[in-house]
């Protein structure tokens, strides 16, 4: 089992929290992990991505080769499209539909969504803002999206939930429960 996952978003949106959840779960399942992330200048509101690879065999490259990603998991629609060259022919796109607009020439949202559907057969659009609100915090968008992508990760959903409990319990019981709810809402989205 090997899963190549490309996490996409804008600096500050929280893709590294998603990565931490997946990493933790993969580690508990005894898998190999490599996860490359972006630090530095691009974190200032720029496009950021993380190449996350999990496998039951040794992983060599920290980077996913072009056309080899099983999943693009994006926190906003334009960033999902940016990494299309990495998506495999039968790969899936799971993306939040709410645009993150911090540039003057941000394209039309509906056009973006139709472009995603055009290029990928297995698309899952998630109204993550709404679900995060429902879970109790607009900040939980990333965990909602982790839930929405759960079925594509090759990891047991129970293990992912356990990882969320373990990672967020440091911030208090309430926060852990909120994120657990966010994950579950994402799962059924």
């Amino acid at each position: 089992m090997t899963r190549n996952i490309l996490l996409a978003g804008v600096g500050g949106q929280g893709i590294l929290t998603i990565a931490a959840i997946i990493d933790h779960a993969a580690m508990q399942q005894g898998l190999y992990i490599k996860q490359a992330e972006v630090h530095g200048m691009s974190q200032r509101g720029g496009a950021v991505q993380s190449h996350l690879r999990i496998s039951d065999e040794e992983i060599f490259s920290d980077l996913i080769p072009l056309g080899q990603a099983d999943l693009i998991l994006s926190l906003e629609p334009m960033e999902a499209l940016r990494y299309l060259p990495w998506l495999s022919q039968d790969g899936a796109v799971v993306t939040a539909t709410q645009p993150f607009i911090n540039i003057p020439n941000y394209p039309d949202k509906e056009q973006l969504l139709s472009e995603i559907s055009k290029h990928c057969k297995d698309v899952h659009f998630v109204n993550a803002d709404k679900l995060a609100q429902e879970a109790g915090s607009p900040k939980a968008v990333n965990v909602v999206m982790a839930g929405a992508a759960a079925q594509y990760l090759g990891l047991s959903p129970e293990q992912l939930l356990e990882s969320i409990r373990s990672l967020f319990s440091l911030k208090g019981q309430h926060i852990a429960e909120l994120n657990e709810k966010a994950f579950k809402l994402g799962q059924t989205s």
Partner: peptide, 15 residues
């Protein structure tokens, strides 16, 4: 590889 669609705008870092 499939090209990144033209609709995607650059998103450079900013203050």
């Amino acid at each position: 590889p499939v090209a990144t669609p033209a609709i995607v705008a650059a998103r450079p870092p900013e203050l």
